[in-house]
Design a binder for these strands. Structure first.
Lengths: 338, 338
DNA sequence: TCTGGCACTCGAACGTACAGAGTGCCAACG
DNA sequence: CGTTGGCACTCTGTACGTTCGAGTGCCAGA
C-alpha cells in the first residue's frame, strides 16, 4: 500500500514529466511542488515507487519517468477530468453549430478535437446498427435494374445497385416501396430482418425473385455498414511527439491508415464512460508508446458511435479527457437536433 | 547552351542522388556511370552546371545535389516516363477490379498509388460538375419537410433536407419528381440550371414557393459539390523523407489536412497530360521541399477528377510518373465499366 | 579540350576531459 | 521510526581537439 505522500510524489512526477518531457529528479520535485519534505525523503519514496513499478529510470543517475503502470494509477486515482472553461465550451458549441450536414459535423468535430487536445483525433461516423430507418427508396433505372437508397435518422444515405433476375414493373415497384416503408420506417436496423422476412410471399411468383434480391441487398447493406467509416485529423501534431522521431511516428501513421485497427481501439471505449488505454494496454503493438482516450457519443442516451484521440503516453490526461468528453457531449446534442 | 555530355552528367547526378540521398562527387560519378571522361573533366562540367543553377553544394567540398531547376530540366528533357512492368499492370487491374462501389474504388486507388510509389497518394473523388444526373428523388418526410436525393452516373449520392414554405401534397410531389427527372436525367450538371428555370410557373400558386426552394437546393447541391472530396493515404511514407525530419514533415502533414490546398495542387494538373510541380514551383510554401505529380483521370476521354502523389523533390520521377499515369488509366477504365 | 596532379577545405568520426544532475547509502536527529 | 543532510559515485551531454577522407578548384601539360 502506498502512503498518501507517495501518491502525491507520483502525481508530481507525472505532472512535471508531462510538462517538461524530461526525467524528473528529487531536487527539482521539491522545488516545484510544496511537498513539505526534503529531497532525500522524496528519493526514498521514489525508490519505493520504482520498486513497485510505477516509475523507472531511463539510465542510472537520471531522473525518473512514469511507467504505463504509473500513468494508469495516475488516471485512476490521482487525476480527475478537467472541465473546460466556459469560453471553450461556447467556442465548441458555436463551431459545431455551423455544420450543414453529417459530413460537416464529423469533419468539424475531428478538427475541433485535434485542436483542443493538440493530438490526433479520430471520429467514427454515427453507426447504422444503432440508428433507425428514416426512409427506403426504390428507383427503377432500367427494366431489370433497381437502385436501393437507404436513409437513416442520423442523416446518412446508402445506395446499392440491384440487378433483378426478371423485369419488375412500376406497379410492383411502388407496391414494394410502400410495403417496405410501412414496415421498417422508424425501426432499428437490428430489428429489421424479421419484419421483412415474409414479404416475398405476398407478391406474384414472377416478382418474388426480385423482391428477395432487394431484401437481401437491404439486409446486406445494414450489416456491411457495421463496418464503419472514420475520419481522422491533426496528424501534424504527431511531430510534437519527441526526439526519437521516426521510430515512434511511423507505426502510428501506419495504424492510423488501418481503419480496422482504429475501430478496434475505439471499440474498447466502455458503453457508459470514457476509456483510457495506456501504452502497452493497446493491443496493437505499433501504438505501444501511445495512449488512446475514447468515449461514445450519441443523441438521447443512445451511443451511436465513438470518438477519441491518440497521443503519446506522456499526455495531459485530465485536460485531454475533459476535451474528449465535452466534444462528445456537444456532438451528441447536435445530432439530436438535426 | 549545355553540351550533350553536361546533360548526361546532370542526369547521372540526379539518378545517383535519388538513389543514395547523398551529395554526389565527381569521382563517384565516373565510377558509377560510363561517361568516358575523367573525374577532372566532370568537375569542370559540374562547375558549369552549378554556375547555371542546376546543381548546388550543401557546403564547400561536398558533392553536388540537384536544385529545383536541375530536377526541372531532368524531368523535361532527360527522363522519360518509365512504363510499369506487365506483372505490375496486372496487379493493378486485379486490385482495382475487386472494388464494389465508388468509395471502394477511390480507397483502393489511394492505397495502390501509395504502395507503388512509396509516397503520399491523393485521389480526388470524381467531380460532379463533369458528371451527369442519373436520377433525382424527392421524398416526403413530414408534411412540410422533403428530402432531395441526387444520384450521379459516377455512383455518388447526395442528399439534402428541405423545409418547405408551405405543405406540399403527395400529388404535387409526384408531379415535380416526374418533371424534374424527365428534364435533367442524363444531363450534365452544368447544363441543368436553364432546363429547370421555368418549372415553378407550371405549378399552382400555393406550390410555387416549395418548388423554387427545391430547385434552388438542387442547384446549390450541384455547385457546392464542386467543392470536392479527397482521399489521401500512405502518410507513413513520409517517414522515409530524410534526416532533417520534423521540419520537413510537419508542414506537409498540415498541408495534407487542408483540402483546399491539395485541391489547388491537383488542379494544376494539365487537362491532357501530367503535371509535375517541383519544390518551389508549388505555391504553398509548406510544400517547398516536395514535388507533386498529378494527372487527370476519367472515363471515355472525359476528365472527371485528378489524382497524384506528394513526395520529396528527391524522388524517382520516371518511376513515379509511370505509376501515376498507369493508375489513372486503370481507374478511368473501371469507372467506364461501372 | 581533356587529363593528371596537387594543395586546400570542410564535415564526419573519434577520443578525452569536464561539468552537472541525480542517485543510493549512511549516520544523525527529533 | 520517519526524516534529513552529507557524501561518494555514476551516468549523460557537451565541448574541444585531432584525424581522416571525400571532394573541390586550379594549373600545367598532352
Amino acid at each position: 500500500m502506498l502512503s498518501e505522500r507517495r501518491l502525491e510524489v507520483l502525481r508530481a512526477i507525472v505532472q512535471d514529466y508531462v510538462g517538461t518531457e524530461e526525467p524528473v529528479g528529487s531536487k527539482a520535485l521539491t522545488e516545484r511542488h510544496r511537498l513539505g519534505v526534503s529531497p532525500a525523503t522524496v528519493r526514498n519514496d521514489m525508490a519505493l515507487l520504482e520498486e513497485e513499478g510505477y516509475i523507472a529510470q531511463p539510465h542510472t543517475s537520471a531522473g525518473r519517468i512514469p511507467t504505463d503502470k504509473g500513468y494508469r494509477l495516475f488516471v485512476d486515482r490521482l487525476a480527475g477530468v478537467k472541465p473546460l472553461s466556459s469560453p471553450e465550451r461556447r467556442a465548441i458549441q458555436n463551431f459545431l453549430d455551423g455544420a450543414v450536414d453529417l459530413d460537416d459535423v464529423v469533419g468539424r468535430t475531428v478538427r475541433l478535437l485535434a485542436q483542443l487536445t493538440r493530438q490526433v483525433a479520430v471520429v467514427q461516423y454515427p453507426s447504422l446498427t444503432r440508428s433507425t430507418v428514416r426512409h427506403v427508396e426504390l428507383l427503377s433505372l432500367a427494366p431489370a435494374r433497381l437502385m436501393l437508397v437507404l436513409i437513416t435518422d442520423t442523416g446518412r444515405v446508402e445506395q446499392r445497385l440491384i440487378d433483378c433476375p426478371s423485369p419488375f414493373g412500376e406497379a410492383s415497384l411502388a407496391d414494394l416501396r410502400a410495403r417496405l416503408n410501412s414496415r421498417v420506417v422508424g425501426r432499428r436496423f437490428t430489428d429489421v430482418p424479421p419484419l421483412v422476412q415474409d414479404l416475398p410471399e405476398s407478391f406474384e411468383a414472377d416478382d418474388r425473385g426480385t423482391v428477395s434480391t432487394v431484401l437481401s441487398t437491404l439486409l446486406e447493406t445494414l450489416v456491411e455498414e457495421a463496418e464503419e467509416r472514420l475520419m481522422i485529423g491533426g496528424t501534424a501534431n504527431l511531430t510534437r511527439f519527441g526526439h526519437d522521431f521516426p521510430l515512434t511516428i511511423r507505426p502510428v501513421l501506419e495504424a492510423l491508415e488501418e481503419q480496422v485497427v482504429l475501430l478496434k481501439l475505439l471499440g474498447e471505449a466502455n458503453e457508459s464512460g470514457m476509456a483510457v488505454r495506456i501504452g502497452h494496454e493497446n493491443a496493437y503493438e505499433g501504438l505501444n508508446s501511445t495512449s488512446v482516450v475514447s468515449v461514445g457519443y450519441g443523441s438521447g442516451g443512445e451511443t451511436v458511435a465513438k470518438l477519441g484521440v491518440v497521443g503519446p503516453t506522456r499526455m495531459d490526461y485530465p485536460g485531454t479527457m475533459g476535451a474528449v468528453r465535452a466534444v462528445a457531449r456537444y456532438v451528441g446534442q447536435i445530432l439530436a437536433e438535426s
